[in-house]
């Protein structure tokens, strides 16, 4: 192979190349930047756009505002997804539940809703043998009903008891949330609503005490991120370092 000797570049040629490359960069920048900026501002994605990790959905629950005797969030979830039970509390599905927490030392009582915490490192996803438990790019943890074999290992692994196994035949299912006997399910963060561009979940929408705030944890300008930055909040079982998408205040 013979060595090729490059002809020495003239000053003009270098300048022309620099001009072209810089020009293209500037043109591209001015064309794309507003689009990107607007995209970030809007948060929403179109229906045919793939889910991306630019967004991470989360929810802030203020236990101070949550009323003891109110379970509107639970009711809204049950109605939206047709979770009406068979009057068998031990086996009926429950995606969200109201929990009363009493401090053993002080006697202080708090009431709060508890559901799938949509962990960044979900143990249910780790243990699922078939990969049916999975985390979407946008942080929502779901179950693929088609490959869930119903082993319930994810239920053993979940530190929040957030998942339910469908123990019996279902009737009158909601078209937007198909469920299946013999598989495991949990709160979906209203994934179908969010995908269609709605801005909040059924539970947060139903909360008349404004104790639930849904939003994008990745967007520093979202109301959720701002509140989380300004006010203290905690994760449940923070010791496990699962980084849940659900955070609590007033605990």
């Amino acid at each position: 192979m013979t060595e090729q000797t490059a002809s020495p570049k003239t000053e003009n040629e270098v300048n022309r190349r620099e001009f072209l490359s810089k020009g293209v960069a500037i043109a591209a920048g001015t064309t794309l930047a507003p689009g990107l900026f607007l995209h970030q501002m809007s948060q929403a994605k179109t229906a045919d756009e793939a889910v991306s990790d630019k967004v991470r959905w989360g929810i802030l629950i203020d236990a101070n505002k949550c009323a003891d005797d109110c379970s509107d969030c639970v009711q809204a979830c049950n109605e939206t997804y047709g979770l009406s039970g068979h009057e068998r509390p031990a086996t009926d599905a429950q995606w969200i539940r109201k929990v009363t927490v009493k401090d053993r030392q002080t006697g202080h009582v708090t009431s709060l809703p508890l559901m799938c915490q949509h962990c960044e490192n979900p143990p249910c996803v780790d243990v699922c043998p078939t990969g049916a438990s999975f985390k979407r790019e946008n942080g929502i943890v779901l179950v693929d009903k088609h490959i869930c074999i119903g082993c319930r290992y994810c239920m053993m692994a979940c530190p929040y008891k957030a998942r339910s196994f469908i123990h019996e035949t279902l009737e009158d299912q909601k078209a937007e949330a198909p469920r299946g006997k013999g598989t495991v399910e949990a709160c979906t963060f209203c994934v179908t609503r969010i995908d269609q561009g709605e801005e909040t979940t059924a539970c947060a929408q139903a909360c008349k005490h404004e104790a639930m705030l849904f939003g994008d944890l990745n967007d520093p300008d979202s109301a959720l991120s701002k509140r989380l930055k300004d006010e203290p909040s905690v994760q449940l079982r923070a010791d496990l370092e699962l980084n849940p998408g659900v955070r609590y205040q007033g605990l």
């Binding site: 996803v125 780790d126 243990v127 699922c128 043998p129 078939t130 990969g131 490959i147 869930c148 074999i149 119903g150 082993c151 319930r152 290992y153 196994f165 469908i166 006997k181 013999g182 598989t183 495991v184």
Partner: peptide, 24 residues
């Protein structure tokens, strides 16, 4: 299993981080 009929899925679709999958 909730779905014994899906044994073939358990045998073909693996999540290798799961000790259960390794057990299979």
């Amino acid at each position: 299993l909730g779905h014994p009929d899906r044994l073939i899925i358990a045998m073909t679709s693996y999540n290798f981080k799961s000790i259960f999958a390794w057990n299979i």
